[in-house]
């Protein structure tokens, strides 16, 4: 556990010293959250869009951060970690802690600034929101580690991540409310984790929806997240 924390801490320090990372994970989504605050605050339009921004950037952040494994393999620190007397579960535990913490910190900053700087109208449903976000972050962590395990370079990860996340949000009925969407749009809105999370969060924050109707999709997210995570963790070790 102590070593997992060391690995997570070194990960944080690398991120904070990378200005591009900070702009990408906090600067850009903050500007977009601010821009969304000019949307009409009716029928959940604002909630949908600002929570969509959050959902989108949390996923991009998680996938990009997970791909740090690839960078570590390239500069040899990964091999050095494996040469140290640290169990593999402690190593991956460190990565998991790092990813979970950065995603939650990012989400909290966006939520709090939405509420206190940009006048978001919500004031309840926080417990449900925390549950849904945790499930979402878990599944995206799984996706990130899985992508890091099958792709060879960080720019490949970047490209795949942008594709998956952009399509999931842009075409997933998140930013542009669609009337009578076509079949393909409906399909994307149904299977995309981004679309699912954004819709679930909107319902929680606007209509006070509870978790009960979300149990099945959440189990699905946890299940696929766990499968991807397991496959990723296994493959990252295998590929030396």
């Amino acid at each position: 556990m102590k070593k997992s924390l060391s690995i997570a801490r070194v990960g944080f320090r690398q991120m904070f010293t990378d200005p591009m990372y900070m702009v990408f994970t906090l600067g850009m989504p903050l500007v977009m959250t601010w821009a969304m605050s000019f949307l009409p605050k009716v029928e959940g339009v604002y909630e949908m869009a600002s929570l969509g921004v959050l959902v989108m950037f949390v996923a991009l952040n998680l996938i990009t951060s997970a791909s740090a494994v690839i960078e570590e393999k390239q500069n040899g620190t990964w091999q050095r970690i494996l040469c140290s007397p640290t169990s593999y579960s402690a190593v991956m535990g460190g990565y998991f802690i790092k990813l979970f913490v950065v995603a939650w910190v990012q989400a909290l900053i966006l939520l709090l600034s939405g509420k206190f700087l940009f006048g978001a109208p919500w004031n309840s449903g926080y417990a449900e929101l925390a549950v849904v976000l945790t499930v979402y972050i878990f599944s995206m962590t799984g996706l990130g580690l899985f992508l890091a395990s099958i792709l060879k370079t960080q720019s490949q990860v970047q490209a795949v991540a942008t594709g998956v996340v952009m399509v999931g949000t842009m075409l997933g009925d998140v930013f542009f409310p669609m009337e009578n969407p076509s079949g393909i749009i409906k399909l994307i809105a149904t299977i995309s984790p981004q679309a699912w999370a954004a819709h679930a969060l909107r319902d929680i924050m606007t209509t006070g929806a509870g978790l009960v109707p979300l149990i099945v999709p959440m189990l699905w997210m946890i299940g696929t997240g766990a499968v991807l995570l397991t496959a990723g963790v296994w493959r990252i070790k295998l590929d030396r």
């Binding site: 060391s6 690995i7 500069n75 007397p85």
Partner: peptide, 29 residues
């Protein structure tokens, strides 16, 4: 592994961190 120290062919260090921060981390591990 606890008995072994490794000096790989290519420097395996974190370029963004200082030498001291690197050594602290490898010491902790």
């Amino acid at each position: 592994k606890a008995l072994i120290g490794v000096v790989p062919q290519e420097p395996a260090i974190y370029p963004q961190l200082s030498a001291r921060a690197n050594l602290r981390f490898w010491g902790e591990l």
